[in-house]
Simulated assay, not measured.
Amino acid sequence: KIDMAHSNLNMRDPVMYRILHATHHRTGDEWCIYPMYDYAHCISDAIEGITHSLCSLEFEDHRPLYDWILDNITIECHPQQIEFARLNPNYMITSKRKLKKLVDGEYVSGWNDPRMPTISGLRRRGYTPGALRKFCEATGVSKANGVIDAGLLEWAIRDDLDSSAPRAMCVLDPIKVTISNYDEDKVENLELSAHPKDESFGKRKLNFTKEVWIDRQDFMEDAPKKFFRLAPGKEVRLRGSYIIKCDEVIKNEQGEVVELICSYDPDTLGKKPEGRKVKGVIHWADVKSSVPVEVRLYDRLFSVPSPEAADENGVVKEFTENLNPESLKVVHGYLEADCAEKLKANPEIGAFQFEREGYFVTDSIDSSADKLIFNKIVSLKDSWEKVK
């Protein structure tokens, strides 16, 4: 019999099941007995032949009842319950009740929103099974509750994709460059390695013409001394091609830079220039052949490490007040044609590294051959380290 003087409250006359004569919303009037969790947990484990039932630490005090029920019924299997600390990464919330509040409140697009720490969300974001296993191996199993740095999860996916993701160039914030001394109708076919560390990935083909896109952040009109990218009168190398020099800046009526007129050195394809040193190398995309793409730049869902903790003034805010307003930005850019053709031939090709930007994967729901939509998986470096 159960001991009413037992030191564990769970062993003092526990409720095993409820009897309720009411119509169930799914099963109707089929039965009226509803087992409690402690009663159903151990018996369902035993019926299914579970050897080890893994639970989080809050179920440690329930283990004696788990064992007592199995010891007092006739059943072949007797599983062993083992408890461990919950995996609590910072900048995240894993409570299903609170995640449901994010979904119901339309703070996110759904359970499979790429910012959500759900299996469907992580899969859509581009996280691989290998990266999740690597993350779990790195964190290990503990009996003490603690907080795991989300940067460790990001390290795991970077490390996993570094060897498996082919490279491509995508200009996310494009500004047009016209090369004044390049022939109007000339097209050069260039080749770049699809992966710098693995020749088995082969080569990728690039077209080079009179007009190319570069990223706006790679140009600065009043550049400081240590800015090694493009600026008026300065030179930079276009990745895998020529060195260009900025000769003229064209602006619109609002004073925004809309085009750069540059000249190129035809003797610098695969060679260093004579008599001068050019440090900067930037990515680019050919205007004629590149493919327009939508890119969703995802970041951490919360702006503080502990969304439910008190702030520096001791005030505990509603966790939704700590949402990161910069967790999603949508931009439109241009992708090198070779990458787009590979995706058209094989939509399941997986993630790419957009050089100098990060790792990206096509959105499993919204992307199509006619309209490529990419989700940012992770940046090449931990940008949050600077914020901290």
Rank of each mutant, 00 (worst) to 15 (best):
D71W: 05
I33V: 15
N90T: 14
D370M: 05
V171C: 02
S327F: 15
N112L: 03
D45H: 02
I250L: 15
C339V: 09
H6R: 11
V236C: 14
S56L: 05
H332F: 06
D218T: 09
F228L: 13
K226A: 14
I349Y: 00
I148T: 13
I282R: 10
E58C: 01
Y91I: 08
D382V: 04
I75N: 02
G146I: 09
V315C: 04
E355H: 12
N145Y: 00
T94K: 12
E60N: 04
M116R: 08
N313I: 04
S241N: 08
S142E: 07
E312Q: 06
G333D: 02
G350E: 02
R97K: 13
G110M: 08
I19G: 04
E83G: 03
F352D: 00
N145H: 03
E58W: 06
H25I: 08
P129G: 02
H332Y: 09
R63S: 03
S200T: 15
T320F: 10
S289P: 06
E312D: 02
E321D: 12
S163H: 14
P196M: 12
R167H: 14
L152V: 11
D183A: 14
P266I: 04
V293D: 00
E248N: 13
L269C: 04
W213E: 03
A231C: 07
K197R: 15
E60D: 06
M36I: 14
E58Q: 08
E336Q: 09
R239S: 13
S327Q: 09
K386H: 00
V141Y: 13
S263M: 03
P174K: 01
